[in-house]
Design a protein around this nucleic acid. Structure first.
Length: 556
DNA sequence: TTCCGACAGTGGGGTCGCAAT
DNA sequence: ATTGCGACCCCACTATCGGAA
């Protein structure tokens, strides 16, 4: 099986605002490859060229312009540069994460006078860096990073820091890169996008496409053993809304666990996460379950979740902790056993089912997977059948699950897309909370107070912080709350502005979870602002006591 | 012309594992 | 042993562009 591409997510620590970029006209060089290997005598793209294009892309908001800039660069790229240039421009490292964060990158290193680093040299240095482990590894990595930074110009340093922290923020990730690739090669964008979804990797497709031309796209088909980006769902606020939008549909229970894609080829079983990481070794139960199914070659989509002995689903925290355990898997499996529950099949016995309507895929699923290993569902014919869908949701919630996913019966499996044919519906709770503090935003929120610290009233007349949120705010709200909170400010340490607890905000959340971090022992899951309640005084805000009473199963 | 789908950005909490303290 | 940090899990929501209606 081939190495898996990693798709780094945003890290928790945010970047500093960038200084205005210097101009640096990049180009090519005749430099050979690095590391004492065989000399590569071809044009090597300079890092400065990449950094310059990245800056230009960031400077425009027009998607078409971003695409044109990328296409121009792809045309310039030498075949050997492609496996590095493509991920770099999509803001990713071919090596995946390297264990370098702000602690290491925060140290200033004097920049080089002129651009001489090639893209391939940077890649070679980072590969070396990624191989460092054992005692003293952190110091050695820091030293290597310092060396690399010292060889980079100021603009190159900024680009590298963005790359290493996963914060290139040029407004062009995979989707825009796909368009640029299509434009550079004359291949239809849809065909490129599909190949990327099926390959689970943009660089692999780019290399084939730039090396061989559009004909190479035919090679990328659903292959057992090669993970495909999973189809995602949108949200709907009610079952009625979802059914009205989709018509004839399947209403399925939504399990609060970890998404898995399971590939079986004879005795070989591989299990992948939503981001295509291979977690086979952590989930022996899933391998065993896949081997018991009456089929030799298939690709299944489902969720892994842990059920307590009474049959109720364990909390997401428990399931996620189990799936994250790698050291003593046998022990973890004894304490928190997990089960796979499947809801779709992408291929079986050499047949690619992706383009079949869901009804037909589900018929295949039912043939392959017995009832208890399939997600519970009910099929409704359309809006006239909403009452049954609502009963199914209520029953699903009684069973302790998260909600439902409503799926159009006629829709194909849109790998990698957040298609409008799957709609999730979850109950939403709201609270009136008091703003205790707010944090200065980054990026497009620079200069705005963004992340709110939320408090509920306590019995002693004070407030207990329940978590933070930056979600749900419009630009107008951001401007308004920045003004208002500054009036209430009692302290500003440059990061957090503490305020008098007088402003009441209505917050929606998905549920309560245990927390070792917050004073009440609980925190809100996925909190987001609904609106400010200027009509409410802080004494009318909700209390910790009433919150815990509303979620007795979570209360400490 | 208006509407709407797709995308990127802005970050949240928890847990695990590793290395440093 | 404890702590700090980074990697990955889960995730909601808004602004914007540009093609569809």
């Amino acid at each position: 099986m081939r190495p898996l591409p990693l798709r780094p997510e945003q890290t928790a620590v945010r970047g500093r605002p960038r200084a205005p970029p210097l101009s640096a006209r990049g180009g090519r060089t005749e430099r050979a490859g690095v590391g004492g290997g065989p000399a590569v005598h071809s044009d090597c793209m300079l890092l400065s060229r990449l950094a310059q294009v990245s800056r230009e892309i960031a400077a425009t908001s027009a998607r078409s312009r971003k695409i044109a800039l990328l296409a121009e660069l792809f045309r310039e790229a030498d075949a050997a540069d492609v496996p590095v240039v493509i991920p770099y421009l999509a803001g990713r490292l071919p090596q995946g994460r390297l264990g370098i964060g702000w602690k290491v990158l925060g140290r200033r290193v004097a920049p080089a006078a002129g651009p001489r680093l090639t893209v391939r040299e940077v890649d070679a240095r980072l590969t070396e860096l990624g191989g460092v482990s054992g005692p003293g590894a952190q110091a050695e990595r820091a030293r290597l990073v310092g060396e690399l930074m010292g060889a980079a110009t100021e603009e190159e340093q900024r680009f590298l820091i963005g790359l290493l922290t996963g914060e290139v923020r040029q407004g062009a990730l995979d989707a825009v890169a796909v368009e640029g690739l299509a434009q550079a090669t004359g291949a239809p964008a849809d065909a490129v996008r599909r190949a990327v979804m099926l390959a689970g990797s943009l660089p692999a497709v780019a290399e084939a496409l730039l090396g061989e031309g559009p004909g190479a796209l035919d090679r990328f088909r659903l292959t057992v053993g090669r993970p495909v980006l999973p189809m995602l769902a949108h949200s709907a606020s009610s079952v009625a809304e979802a059914v009205t939008r989709l018509g004839a549909c399947s209403v399925e229970e939504k399990l609060d666990g970890i998404r898995v894609q399971v590939h079986r080829d004879g005795d070989t079983v591989r299990v992948h996460t939503r981001t295509l990481d291979d977690i086979t070794d952590r989930l022996p139960e899933v391998t065993a379950a896949a081997r018991e199914l009456p089929g030799e070659r298939f690709v299944l989509d489902g969720e892994v979740i842990s059920f307590a002995p009474d049959g109720r689903p364990r909390s997401f925290q428990e399931t996620a902790g189990r799936v994250g355990s790698r050291v003593d898997v046998a022990k973890a499996a004894r304490e928190v056993p997990v089960s796979p529950v499947f809801f779709d099949v992408l291929g079986v016995d050499g047949r690619d089912l992706l383009d079949l309507p869901f009804t037909e895929r589900h018929a295949e699923l039912a043939r392959l997977v017995p009832e208890p290993r399939r997600v519970r569902r009910t099929v409704v014919s359309g809006p006239q059948d909403v009452a049954r869908a609502e009963r199914f949701l209520a029953e699903t919630l009684r069973r302790g699950h998260e909600g439902v996913v409503v799926k159009a019966l006629g829709a194909p499996y849109s790998a990698g897309r957040r298609g409008a044919s799957w709609l999730k519906v979850k109950p939403v709770h709201t609270l009136d909370l008091v703003v205790l503090a707010a944090e200065w935003g980054h990026g497009r929120r620079t200069g705005r107070l963004s992340n709110l610290h939320l408090g509920a009233r306590t019995a002693d007349g004070g407030h207990a912080m329940l978590g933070k949120t930056f979600k749900g705010m419009t630009d107008a709200m951001l401007a308004w709350q920045t003004e208002r909170l500054r009036e209430l400010a009692v302290d500003d340490d440059g990061h957090v502005v503490t305020v008098r607890p007088e402003l009441v905000v209505e917050v929606a959340y998905d549920g309560l979870q245990r927390s070792p971090r917050y004073p009440a022992g609980v925190t809100l899951r996925f909190a987001r602002v609904v609106r400010y309640r200027e009509d409410k005084r802080p004494e009318e805000a909700d209390t910790v006591e009433s919150l815990l009473a509303a979620h007795p199963d979570v209360a400490p």
